[in-house]
Amino acid sequence: MSDILEIFMSASFWAAAIRIATPLIFGVVGALICERSGVLNLGIEGIFTAGAMAGWMAVWLGAGLWGGVLVAALAGGFFGLIHAVLTVPLGLSQHVSGIGVTLFATSLSYFIYRTALPDVSSPPRIEAFQPLDIPVLSDLPFLGPALFQQTPLTFLALFLVAATAYVLYRTPLGLAIQAVGDNPAAVESQGLSVYGLRMGTVVAGSAIMALGGAFLTMSAFDAFFFGMVNGRGWICIALTVFASWRPGKALLGALLFGAFDAFQVRLQTEVGSFIPGQVFLMMPYLLSIAALIVVARRADYPRALLVPYFRGQR
């Protein structure tokens, strides 16, 4: 028992939780932005892969790290645009289009990677982002190593949460996004463009999702390999519901999941000798499902989510 308590007392546990949560924060913020405007983006899993590959490839080809981040965001925006065109003006099924984008983006990323590196057996590494050394804060006892020795992308993720919350609740644009996800007719009757808003949020949201993928190759693993996204995109879709489409709660959900995951890794080393490791691997997902059941039953869905809008039809 005291061993388990010790896990929570260690700074490295919290640092790991935040590190694991970072790609999820990007993903859930991106998904939330899309869904707030009424478009479910199941392209997320593929967009993660595309972001991971594009960012890594740019750096490997000689771009700077921030150049890589930009390329990843552009790649995400590109696949977001495909999804947006299919689902917003054309009004196709958001599920089908999203899964199509995931399959397309994933395969295309693998294809490009294989074409560029036909013979490598172990994935080449890049010089990735290093933890920031923030004066004073990083040197605090316990809090320093737990919270403030992260790479710049983690801080970018946290900044995006705050920025998204501000835009959503404090600006005219945010009001319009909230309204278009609830009742597109309200937006049109006030002289705004439903298609413009929805396409804009899907492209922007997808670009942010792709940063989650870029974090994996440019901050966590320093390399790109097949299957590395490993369902993180789908987790973000669930976390969005868990968060009731609110940025603050989205951050909380991502951190909670990160903590579960960091905890199960440490628990394996404690009691792994007599319980198979797969049980621990399952744990974060089981706990997410349990949390979803508790929270999401009361979820306040954007009313127009999944409903395409056609002008002049009501």
Binding site: A179, G181, D182, N183, S189, R303
Partner: peptide, 10 residues
Amino acid sequence: HQHFTLAENL
């Protein structure tokens, strides 16, 4: 409009 054009979440 006959069917109101209001965003209920705002």
